[in-house]
């Protein structure tokens, strides 16, 4: 029975969807911004895989089919971007200032904390590109001599954190402008954060999408300058 469950190609896909469904159900019962369907789903998936004595490989052989939609889905972020293009043109100075401050700030914070924790060069450059989208971030990490797999893990933790704290952080720090919210969320936590921004509103989503692209580019340019500092 257990073998049948875990060896079926649909096991991973079904597990992902059902756990996400449970996450949404819990969110409906407890509508707190920190209750996060994505995190609940990930935790339940890992728990099920361990309890069924299966492994990630088996899970992923089915779940990857869900992941295939990620590229088309990311590309669709261009649609809200297009629909809010006038807003984008009107505010481009503010957007560029905000994203640059965030992207450079991200690397500065990683630098400061790495110094504080006494991390080595390799560990430091592994974390440098942690705020940008996985595909660019892993490339930057590899180029600087970091561990791309750990960069990917750090990027995920960043995304999930951003997704979870977005609403609370904007409220506490009085970020009320929807454009500013979107830029903050997207610059800090790439596409995973953007999926939260999309739920907050169209403007937030469009601005967050824009931040993924621009923050990625800025990080590619500035990371090599930050790298030799430790």
């Amino acid at each position: 029975m257990r073998e049948f469950l875990t060896e079926s190609v649909l096991f991973g896909a079904v597990l992902s969807m059902v756990t996400y469904g449970i996450g949404c159900w819990i969110k409906k019962k407890i509508p707190h911004p920190m209750v996060n369907p994505l995190l609940i789903s990930i935790a339940l998936c890992i728990l099920c895989i361990i309890l069924l004595k299966s492994d990630y490989e088996t899970y992923y052989s089915g779940a990857q089919y869900i992941g295939y939609l990620l590229t088309p889905s990311t590309i669709c972020l261009a649609v809200p971007l297009y629909e809010k293009f006038e807003l984008l043109k009107k505010n481009y100075v503010a957007l560029l200032c905000g994203i640059t401050a965030g992207a450079v700030g991200s690397m500065a914070v990683v630098f400061a904390l790495s110094m504080l924790f006494g991390l080595e060069h390799t560990e430091y450059v592994t974390l440098l590109p942690k705020s940008i989208t996985t595909a660019i971030g892993m490339g930057v990490s590899e180029e600087l001599g970091g561990y791309p797999a750990i960069t990917a893990a750090a990027i995920m933790v960043t995304g999930i954190t951003g997704n979870m704290i977005a609403e609370t952080a904007c409220k506490i720090f009085r970020i009320t402008d929807p454009i500013a919210k979107g830029i903050g969320i997207g610059t800090a936590s790439h596409a995973v954060g953007t999926s939260k921004a999309m739920e907050l509103g169209e403007v937030e989503g469009a601005m967050s999408s824009l931040s993924i692209v621009v923050a990625g580019v800025i990080t590619v340019i500035f990371a090599p300058m930050f790298a030799p500092m430790i």
Partner: peptide
């Protein structure tokens, strides 16, 4: 623990800095 703290803290700082500057 270090990785985790760095990832969480920098995410919060960046979100606030970026949002505040834009606003």
């Amino acid at each position: 623990i270090q990785y985790f703290v760095i990832a969480m803290v920098s995410t919060m700082v960046v979100m606030v800095v970026s949002g505040k500057v834009t606003q």
